[in-house]
Nucleic acid binder design. Structure first.
Lengths: 335, 335
DNA sequence: TTGAAAGCGCTAACAC
DNA sequence: GTGTTAGCGCTTTCAA
């Protein structure tokens, strides 16, 4: 693999000049520049980003840790990140631990060892300590997760408000017995659960609270729904912690012979591409993934450029998207 | 940010010992090792992968270029890649150009400048020359795409056979007028089209060939279907170049009042998670994404370890997955 | 406008 | 078992 020295020799100049050319710096005579470009081409030279990064002490790379690449919602987030990063002259490198906490932490370490200039943690299962640790060496923005330590910024959607929107929508149809399928241990999931609980209480439905375990996957939703189906008295509506989970639940309910929304109403969270499909047509809470990705990049760059040292916590508003999985309960609400 | 020297000083040892410890090499006294570990912890030291990579001339990182992170099929591919790479002690870094050819090429260059030890190109829109160029510096495996140059290995599913499976299945129901919605300019898409054409000819259906433009996205499928709907005589069956495309087409057809599979049969390609959803239940051609990802890693490591210098071209067999979007044509087939 | 030289943080070869 | 040193490929003073 050719080095800058090979190029310099071939072009009959010093390394410095080659460096100036690859960095697009001016002040090189047209003649030498041409010779250098030619040598680069002939040798298939490509600057070594590690050597460069080592001396420049920055990489202009933003690291992104995504826990579930199979969830289309994160596809939207990444699009937003990529778009804004590119505008600002940064590259984006993505890593995933495929939902395994230990692998995720090691993947994050990997990014850190590479000395990325900033890190976006999109809803991972990475522990608080690991985040704090990362935050000590590089600007970090976490997505959809509360941060205790104030070393990192966050961009979240208001999960409490979103959950309330879901419950409110169901209540407005006359539902009272509204169950919740949990989203597992991820940070955002816990807050949605909290939002559900609060909303139920606020609507005077404390007695009707039912929660079952689940996860932010179709399988998780399926299992949660099966739990619900075992109950003596079924809920008339179900709020699932995310769309994937809702879709899994939908499958389970329909397999059990229930018709949605006639026998049961269902609401998800995220508004991912699957939810919008005509055949799914899931009523859900929209979180603007692309916007959140773009904001995360902005926050990161402010830190990198040193424009801001105060922690920032962006909260975007979720909104209700009514589709075909919600309607009035089969029997008149008692109240 | 602390360096290895800081750690050495704090632990009262030389850099070499610290290096040995971070690399997990033996031959360090228990006493010093403990002191070093402590210093590392206190200083929040993290080895600089750039400096390390510079001297070791390898990074143990595999780069993956994915063109569409919104397509769940690639999620499966990445899972496979990640799993196998981890077993073999390699990290995986993913990049995407979000379906923009120029951005994709620059994203690929980025990976190359970082000196990844190998590159997996998962169905990107990157040009042949760019691939060949990359192949000159690092082992490259391309997914689902024919390579002209023999510098890179490939892992593909047999798109010709897969397309034939789709056509055959429809023919077995008595369909004759089977249209094809194209998948755009990506390499795999062109081969599927070719497979469709060949299969139609082989079944003596040359007269019935109808192709319309599309892309490997829902929007692309929707538009392709709209084209089809404008035709004087509608096909009785449609084969779409991938699942996303098929799902978009399904939406368009149903919006136009057609019922699937009664008025029209539909087959996709990939067997992604959306296709398997109960409400979509798309008949499709399965390609084993996870297996393909794992194979790609294997091929790459053979090259990296120098175990193989001959080009390899893995071809996996696609299979038909019959679900609910195909059936006999509404009117008896004439023949 | 150009070149020489120091040094980024690390590993590896060697000496002790 | 431990320390010293050269050098990976680059950028960045600084001089010429």
């Amino acid at each position: 693999m050719p080095t800058i020295l090979d190029v310099a020799r071939r072009a009959g100049v010093s390394k410095s000049l080659v460096s100036m050319v690859t960095r697009g710096e001016g002040g090189v005579s047209e003649e030498k520049r041409r010779a250098i470009l030619e040598a680069i081409d002939e040798l298939d030279y490509r600057p070594n980003a590690m050597a460069r990064g080592l001396v420049q002490r920055q990489t202009r790379i933003l690291g992104v840790m995504i826990s579930d690449l199979q969830n289309p919602f994160f596809g939207a987030v990444i699009s937003g990140i990529q778009e804004r990063a590119e505008e600002r002259g940064f590259r984006v490198l993505i890593t995933t631990g495929d939902r395994t906490p230990s692998v995720e932490e090691s993947a994050m370490e990997n990014l850190l060892e590479l000395r990325v200039d900033g890190l976006i943690l999109a809803s991972p299962r990475v522990g608080d300590e690991a985040i704090a640790h990362a935050g000590r060496s590089v600007p970090v923005v976490v997505l959809n997760r509360d941060t205790n330590d104030d070393s990192s910024d966050s961009v979240t959607n208001d999960n409490i408000a979103g959950a309330r929107l879901a419950v409110e929508h169901l209540v407005s149809f006359g539902h009272r017995r509204i169950a919740f399928i949990e989203g597992g241990v991820g940070a955002g999931a816990r807050i949605r659960r909290e939002g559900y609980l609060r909303a139920m209480r606020d609507f005077g439905l404390e007695e009707e609270i039912v929660t079952v375990e689940g996860r932010h996957t179709e399988e998780g939703g399926h299992q949660g729904a099966m739990e619900l189906l075992k109950m003596r008295v079924l809920p008339t509506a179900v709020f699932a912690s995310n769309d994937l989970c809702a879709i899994g639940a939908m499958t389970a309910f329909e397999e059990a012979g229930l018709s949605i929304p006639d026998d049961l109403s269902l609401v998800g969270y995220d508004n991912n591409r699957m939810a919008a499909l005509r055949h799914i047509s899931l009523t859900t809470i929209d979180q603007p993934g692309g916007d959140m990705g773009r904001s995360a990049v902005e926050r990161l760059l402010e830190r990198i450029d040193g424009d801001r040292t105060e922690p920032s916590h962006d909260v975007v508003s979720p909104s209700l998207v009514v589709r075909s999985t919600t309607g009035p309960p089969r029997f008149e609400a008692k109240a």
